[in-house]
Design a protein around this nucleic acid. Sequence first.
DNA 1: AGCAGGCATTGACACCTGTCAATATAGACA
DNA 2: TGTCTATATTGACAGGTGTCAATGCCTGCT
Lengths: 135, 135
Amino acid sequence: MNVYMRGLWMELLEILECSPPLTREPLDAEQAAGVARVFKALGDPVRLRILSIVASRAGGEVCVCDINDAFELSQPTISHHLKVLKEVGLLTSERRASWMYYRLAPETLGELSALLTLPASLPASGPAAAAAVPR
Amino acid sequence: MNVYMRGLWMELLEILECSPPLTREPLDAEQAAGVARVFKALGDPVRLRILSIVASRAGGEVCVCDINDAFELSQPTISHHLKVLKEVGLLTSERRASWMYYRLAPETLGELSALLTLPASLPASGPAAAAAVPR
DNA sequence: AGCAGGCATTGACACCTGTCAATATAGACA
DNA sequence: TGTCTATATTGACAGGTGTCAATGCCTGCT
């Protein structure tokens, strides 16, 4: 991981750690932009499947060649998706001999999960305070 | 909510409920497509902020006019984002008198959070099983 | 050095997305 | 009925995104 990528990574972690659950208080524009980068990366079916392949693999890491075999997509396309997942801090990579191994970055997933966590007190959908006039 | 929307909504809930955590086993293409729709909706800073405004509001619901006031975007743009969040099942809406009120759909957020939940046993990043040859 | 395999990068292209102005729709009230 | 307010829809446009073929780079092997 080069210096630039590490900078991005640290910045992302900071944004995520500073973000309260969505239910506590509204995100400001900066927080929202940081978190949205990660969700956008999760918003593609191929990337979700790649992530789940890595996450569910015993040992926690996968060779790129195995990922390529799991899809009917070109090798550059898979490489592109891996790059996106790495840039937002969801995956890390390491070269060993001729092969690249990708691993989950558990912190990022965990922070996202916490962000979406709801307090038990949140009411279910339905009209609440009658028809009070807003503003 | 019309019949078509209700169909989409039920279908989405089913997909989410049937999806194991990412770490259990790889998602198939259909599961991934369903979940990716929701994450894609979360992958925009404005929509994330809208969602956090609704989620953090005491009483659990917000009038559209309040959301409009919170952004320097045109009214149609906000309306578009609200539609997207509603279509993927993250928000519900209800008309009372002249005003539209939007509320969180807690089930969808909760399912997403569970999907991203990691088992405590997952190893941190780092080389694992030495340099075993893949395939 | 030369070659072969594994993966990344580049460039191109069709498609999708966020935004706005203009317009439409629906309810409240006179 | 007509008008006003609140929200949704339409149409258009710039910029972003997923995909592939072609190419480049790195590593190990001969």
